[in-house]
């Protein structure tokens, strides 16, 4: 899924980038919601925009869509400067948007909502999308579950066959099966040439689906790397319940960091392959294992330090 990333190492030129942020800054009083954020998203890639809740992801997206005005700096979307309202409005004909909070006309049925967006933008791909994502079209949106709202949102974001789709926490509310379906769909779209800007606070999701990732924290871009680099830095949050006490020197391997071994419980972050960890664990009398994704904050602490200035 990330085979194309190597070619993108070189800094791209302004003409080719689908999205280019240049010192984009948004300040609310003393709070820097976005602090001089700069990066570029290339055509035909899935760009992950990763950060904990409140990091400033949605602010960036709303700046890109012209819903907010930058305090300083700027950005281009499909070649249009976001400070040029007319140019940006024209460019939006080729942009799809899936917001985190989906504001639909609640009394309308899903079908009527899609009719509205079809008149607003066109709907070349509506039927095709409705075979993959099936919200109950004849029911009013106010009766929808989170998952159904999200599916309706996905359909409206892609139905006019845009060149760029900006998605803000697209899988929230979707069950794992539909998350997988969305991930596969996004990969197909990417292969067909669509550029996807994928904002998320879930590390594993970004690792799974994105080609490159920008990590934002407290309004600042703290890392910009390919998914391979992120995978190298990533780790699993592991908790092991043992039947009896073990010798720490034997139990702890070099791939384990931040180990807490208290009584018969071990907690650590595992930076190696999961299969190797399981092979290691079967040597012990284990009663329970819990392997999960680390909290983003943990990842930041380990790999970027508490001071986000370290990495630019």
């Amino acid at each position: 899924m990330s085979g194309q990333t190597a070619a993108r190492e070189a800094e791209p030129t302004a003409d080719t980038a689908t999205i280019r942020l240049d010192g984009l800054t948004k300040q609310y009083g003393d709070v820097m919601a976005n602090d001089a954020v700069s990066f570029a998203v290339e055509p035909g890639e899935i760009f992950g925009y990763l950060g904990p809740n409140g990091a400033g992801k949605t602010t960036t997206i709303r700046l890109l869509l012209g819903l907010l005005k930058p305090t300083s700096g700027t950005a281009t979307v499909l070649g249009a400067d976001i400070r040029d309202r007319r140019a940006l409005t024209r460019a939006k004909a080729n942009v799809g948007y899936l917001p985190d909070t989906l504001g639909f006309e609640e009394r309308l049925t899903g079908r009527q909502v899609l009719e509205y967006f079809a008149r607003l933008r066109g709907d070349e791909r509506r039927d095709e999308l409705l075979e993959l994502f099936r919200p109950p079209l004849d029911k009013p949106v106010e009766t929808y579950s989170h998952g159904n709202r999200r599916m309706l949102g996905i359909v409206q974001a892609f139905m006019h066959d845009p060149d760029l789709v900006i998605m803000d926490e697209p899988t929230s509310g979707l069950d794992p099966l539909k998350q997988d379906r969305l991930h596969r769909f996004l990969e197909d779209e990417r292969d067909a040439g669509t550029t996807i800007f994928f904002s998320s606070h879930v590390l594993s999701e970004v690792q799974r689906v994105c080609d490159r990732v920008g990590i934002i924290r407290d309004g600042e871009l703290v890392a910009l790397e390919t998914i391979e680099e992120l995978l190298e830095r990533g780790g699993k949050d592991v908790r092991v319940q043992l039947a009896g006490p073990v010798d720490p020197d034997q139990f702890v391997t070099t791939e384990m960091i931040d180990v807490e071994l208290v009584d018969r419980t071990a907690r650590f972050t595992y930076t190696g392959e999961s299969i190797e960890l399981l092979e290691h664990l079967v040597q012990y009398d284990v009663t329970d294992v819990d392997i999960g994704d680390p909290q983003l904050d943990e990842v930041f602490k380990h790999y970027y330090g508490t001071d986000s200035q370290e990495i630019g």
């Binding site: 819903l67 948007y97 989906l102 006309e105 967006f117 607003l120």
Partner: peptide
């Protein structure tokens, strides 16, 4: 109301001016 419910975000993500 459209601004409050974020409906305006979706409307303005189309090629339509304010």
């Amino acid at each position: 109301r459209d601004v409050r419910t974020r409906r305006m975000d979706l409307t303005l993500s189309s090629a339509v001016s304010r």
